[in-house]
């Protein structure tokens, strides 16, 4: 009688007044999948007795029959262990959810997403629908989200491929989001909602019984969560910030002064700063030489270490009139200074 206690007496009476009141009596709305909807439970008693010392033929009662109705009980959970780190701006980042049919009959569910559900916590940003799509259904071929390829998951189309789940079955759902250009280290939430597609079920009061709409032709009974389920997943804009500043560190002209004139040698400095939490992978800095300048051979210095120009084992080279430095995986925080020189033509 759990849900009765949550109702005001007046609404209880109103509920009892409806014709389906017999079905409001379930003592609990369990999460576990129970006896399949449509099952007929039959009770019979067999009686043996004697009359005047003589055993009589045993008698079996007519059966008391109870048909098991379908309980509609979706369960939705967000599966990622923690907020998913995203770049800002960024595209097509994935949250993983699991929709489970916690009822006892086959049931189809419609899915909707709400970006930045209200009330929006202070400081949160609102994720955007993903560029490649908003929701995807795991097709079971390969764990994790695949947008393309032979095992590509299925884009969700409401009314077309709504998850239709057997009792106890589950469907992994991917929420795909783009990230606007916002501050770092802030959260963006997406609320995913599932609602039973049995007409009249979603949003109805717990215990509402829908004649003939349950699996097996019995009643469909709305469970404690009103035939709906929702879960919120969270992104966090990556705390990793990369700042690259290029400056002219010095100019030395042929007269020994600092006038940028033909023949003057300019020392360029590129400061790479990585801050925040995390690390950058495969970080490469490339800098095409400015027009009307000529590279000074062997002038690349990375954090105080001279590098060769050749494309070789060291991580810097000059090729195609471009200075490039492969920094590889760089853990934050990091400060890397690259300098090279060029002569003004």
């Amino acid at each position: 009688m759990q849900f009765f206690s949550r109702l005001k007496p007046r609404s209880l009476i109103r509920l009892l007044g409806v014709s389906a009141c017999l079905l409001l009596i379930a003592p609990q709305f369990g999460w576990a999948v129970g006896t399949p909807a449509g099952t007929t439970i039959s009770n019979t008693a067999k009686v043996s007795y004697t009359i005047g010392g003589a055993a009589q033929p045993p008698i079996t009662s007519t059966p008391a029959l109870v048909k098991v109705d379908e309980l509609i009980q979706p369960i939705l959970t967000w599966q990622d262990a923690a907020a998913v780190a995203v770049s800002t701006p960024g595209i097509n980042d994935v949250l993983q959810f699991l929709l489970t049919n916690g009822g006892n009959g086959q049931e189809a569910f419609g899915m909707t997403r709400t970006n930045g559900p209200l009330p929006l916590p202070t400081g949160n940003y609102t994720p955007l629908n993903g560029s490649i799509g908003t929701l995807y259904l795991e097709n079971g071929l390969q764990p994790g989200f695949q947008a393309t390829g032979p095992n590509a998951d299925t884009a969700y189309a409401p009314g077309v491929n709504d998850p239709n789940l057997a009792a106890g079955a589950g469907q992994i759902i991917y929420v795909i989001s783009d990230t606007p250009n916002v501050a770092i280290n802030i959260h963006g939430d997406v609320l995913l909602s599932a609602a039973s597609l049995t007409p009249g079920a979603a949003g109805a009061a717990p215990g509402t019984s829908l004649a003939g709409l349950g699996q097996g032709g019995g009643f469909a009974v709305v469970g404690a969560t009103r035939a709906k389920a929702s879960a919120t997943g969270s992104y966090i804009t990556s705390g990793l910030g990369l700042v690259v500043n290029k400056t002219v560190a010095s100019v030395l002209d042929p007269k020994g002064t600092a006038v940028p004139m033909p023949g003057a040698v300019v020392t360029y400095q590129i400061a790479v700063m990585l801050h925040g939490v995390g690390g950058a992978t495969n970080l490469v800095i490339t800098d095409p030489l400015p027009a009307n300048t000529t590279y000074v051979p062997g002038s690349i210095i990375v954090s105080g270490v001279a590098k060769t120009d050749a494309t070789d084992s060291d991580n810097a080279q000059f090729a195609a009139n471009t200075v490039s430095v492969s920094l590889g995986n760089v853990a934050s925080p990091a400060n890397i200074v690259i300098t090279f020189r060029a002569t003004i033509n």
Binding site: A26, G34, Y49, I51, V66
Partner: peptide, 29 residues
């Protein structure tokens, strides 16, 4: 007549002697 899983059902077997003699050794299984 219809119920969802988790429902506690009370089953009652009523036995009545509709004959003219007393019945003994009544066992209900």
């Amino acid at each position: 007549e219809k119920a969802i899983p988790g429902t506690e059902v009370i089953y009652t077997n009523t036995f009545e002697n509709v004959g003219k003699q007393a019945a003994s050794n009544i066992v209900i299984n």
